[in-house]
Amino acid sequence: MALTWETIREGDVLPELKKRPGVTQLVKYAAGSGDFNPLHHDFQFPQAKQLGSIIVHGRFKYAALGELVSNWLGHAGRIRKISCQYRAMDFPDREFVCRGTVTRKWEERGERLVALAIWTESDDGKKTTPGEAIVALRA
């Protein structure tokens, strides 16, 4: 059944989305996004050598948070706004989990809106990419 504004409650938890991007996944993301920064695929790149590894694109994590919200919403509405901050790095072949909760629900100019807190959590429990989203429900 499609998600509706009426049935959403503040405090609802979104189904989590697990990600464990390896180098190949990051290369696919580079091609899909057009971001070919070698920091995300070339272990010999000076900045990667300095860090001891390549790192996951911040924007990959942003896009994964987009996927989290999209999967939950199931096209029963539209994302109006989505944001995040890249607070710490994530590394390839390490799991991170995308999570979200409903923080607010309100009506504004005839639109049925819901605000979400969203974030990625690394395997050491660190919230590396906290963010927010606002979605408008169709019904």
């Binding site: 920091l39 924007r59 109006r80 706004k81 944001s83 995040c84 901050q85 890249y86």
Partner: peptide, 15 residues
């Protein structure tokens, strides 16, 4: 020389 992404916000007005 060093570059990192800080944060991103996208606001949508249409599909």
């Amino acid at each position: 020389k060093g570059l990192l992404d800080g944060g991103t916000e996208t606001e949508y007005f249409a599909d």
